[in-house]
Nucleic acid binder design. Structure first.
Lengths: 191, 191
DNA sequence: CTTGGCTATGCAACGAGTTGCATAGAAGGA
DNA sequence: TCCTTCTATGCAACTCGTTGCATAGCCAAG
């Protein structure tokens, strides 16, 4: 279960509440792992019960109190152990590719709008990642000699950037292919 | 649930048994969607019950009988409807990226072997995809004028090829970064 | 002749992930 | 004033996905 480990990494980088973790899973950590707040609260509770995390009640003004979690020694040990275990190379779950192949059995032109919409989403993500890179790693405001943690965060972010660039180029390829197919024989059904 | 739709697309491309579908999910369809045979059998049974699929018992010689599934009219309609609905742009689940960020809290050198192993797996996948492309789409044995279905299968395969190339290049970036970090300060823990 | 691998299907149990709903105080706009 | 949004946490029900196990006939290698 990698959600536990993603939470350990995020809390080692900076302690925080379930709510704050949920925010991070929409940003930095969320570039390569997603989780909803329900999942996070449930797992935090279990990990606290297992002694992997320590909790501290923090009273706040103008907003509800929060529980700030931080990594306890057993949690750090569990992460270290996981780092030394091999994991399965990831595999994709790409709904859009299913749709594109499925379009052969309906109207290929019908998925053009959907592909364009996905292209816009990926363009926005790329812009967001590039802005983050400039802010945290390559801009004038960024700390000049990056430490190990920052270097590793940067190389992971570069992976996200490469992924989005690749995806955008591929979606352009898909759009060109769809246009070629629908120009020659509009609404062609081959069955 | 996209597994249903992936099965519909695969069965429209060619009818087959649960076992054959499981094979395909290790090859072509598996480039962008994974499923185990248990999942497939369970979903096939449900879809048959819903009237989306038709079954035909096929007796075989030298091997067990099989149930050959094909798409019935309601299944085709369900796929067509899904093609017209918007879907969420996919998000990654990348364990290795969690490990890489986590390596800052242990020994960065400890993940080098793991990253190299993943690089080998992705290189093998790329070689496999390229061989498939040559066999089915760009080689002398491939059908010269591709039909709509083949064109769309090809563009999806090109996506898989682009993904593997991007991933290999990124893993090289990761390895270079890890070497840089461990050369300067071997087994550096910054906490 | 026994062992292991391939085709072929399936059950049972569990863990992971999603969806809907609920609470509750504070801030800010219509 | 009411409505919405934000912070903050959580339960309950459900579906999806994984893992382990079981059956069973055929084939090939040792």
């Amino acid at each position: 279960m990698a959600l536990e480990h993603a939470i350990l990494v995020s809390l080692l980088e900076k302690p925080g509440s379930g709510y704050e973790l949920a925010r991070r899973f929409e940003r930095s950590i969320g570039y390569f792992w997603t989780a909803t707040h329900q999942q996070i609260y449930r797992v935090l509770k279990r990990m606290e019960g297992d002694g992997m995390l320590a909790v501290r009640e923090v009273a706040q003004e103008g907003r509800p109190d929060k529980k700030e979690y931080s990594v306890a020694a057993p949690g750090r040990a569990a992460l270290a152990q996981w780092l030394h275990e091999p994991i399965e190379p990831e595999s994709l779950r790409h709904d859009l590719a299913v749709k594109i192949r499925g379009a052969a059995f309906d109207d290929p032109a019908a998925v053009v709008g959907e592909v364009e919409r996905h292209r816009r989403v990926h363009s926005a993500r790329l812009a967001h990642y590039l802005a983050g890179e400039l802010r945290d790693f390559t801009g004038p405001e960024a700390p000049a000699p990056l430490d190990t943690g920052q270097e590793l965060q940067h190389v992971v972010l570069r992976g996200g950037i490469a992924y989005e660039r690749m995806t955008i180029a591929w979606l352009d390829d898909v759009l060109a292919t769809l246009h070629r197919l629908t120009a020659g024989a509009p609404t062609s059904h081959d069955h």
